[in-house]
Write a protein that binds this DNA or RNA. Structure first.
Lengths: 155, 155
DNA sequence: AAAATAAAAGACCTTTATATCTTATTGTAA
DNA sequence: TTACAATAAGATATAAAGGTCTTTTATTTT
């Protein structure tokens, strides 16, 4: 559905959103540890999001990633678009380049609805909206029991 | 959304369905040419579908792939499952292994609906049902103008 | 019935894309 | 001026996609 990059980017930005009280900063290391994302992979994705002005960053001691009031107006669709492009919203389910209303594949009309619905979820969800949801404690961004698996942690 | 393998497998079986009049046989070469799928890739996928009893095959001269009355009762979900597994129907959009009703991710409830709808389309579409749709000539399985692109053809 | 042939089945290899890791640089705050 | 943390380029590993070749099986044809 989404690439691993995009899953990681969404989880990362949601984690930052959850910790975005009065411009608090979150380090890539912190995100990587908490969400079980390879450190340098997370760092690269956060760079892309920062360059696209979807999140803000600050170098140096006590630096990290954070969200301004403006950043909080972005939707999750902006994140998906920055990492994976618009393929998930528009591509033919059978991968046909020239599939369209005038030359539809046998599943074209069935999937128009589904793709619109997927786009709607991402577009209608702004970071600001999702913030309280995250602070309620009823929703989770990581797997249960990760510490019980004897996996090597990145430095 | 779907892997390339799965896209190819679906297009292939739909092509066979379209040509499944009185047990007519279609060769892998034919499928590969018509749908622009690498020959040996198509052959491999057709093998998997034949082993799973989703399609039928016949070796030797005038052999090829075809559909019995029983084969025609299969749904597209059977094809997706045989090639990609059930991930598209059940996996968490953020890739969380332990995402569930009791430990939902922030997008869990939004995507339950979407995943059910996707499953419904594939499960509700049997080959038998889609056959007349394909024979109507209003739906297409390949791209327009492929012959205009100067691409190398497989032998 | 035997030989020739057509087409699927299967093992294995190469290429390409995605994901992950290494190392170095730059900017900022204390 | 030192330590911290983002930025950046590039290398390596892993997985997906695509390709080559051989074997098996069944149907023709002689």
């Amino acid at each position: 559905m989404l690439s691993k990059s995009c899953e990681y980017a969404l989880k990362s930005i949601l984690y930052i959103t959850k910790h975005s009280q009065n411009l608090e900063r979150v380090g890539a290391k912190n995100i990587s540890d908490e969400l079980d994302i390879p450190y340098h992979f997370a760092a690269k994705l956060l760079q892309i999001l920062a360059k696209a002005d979807i999140i803000s960053s600050q170098k140096g001691p006590n630096g990290g990633f954070y969200l301004t009031a403006d950043n909080l107006t972005h939707s999750l669709a902006d994140v998906v678009f920055a990492i994976d492009g618009n393929g998930i919203f528009v591509d033919c389910i059978l991968g046909l380049k020239t599939c369209s209303e005038t030359r539809p594949c046998p599943l074209h009309y069935e999937f128009i609805d589904i793709k619109i619905k997927i786009a709607k979820v991402f577009e209608d969800t702004t970071l600001d909206q999702i913030k309280s949801k995250l602070l309620s404690g009823e929703f989770y961004l990581n797997n249960l029991n990760v510490s019980c698996q004897y996996e090597r942690k990145n430095k």
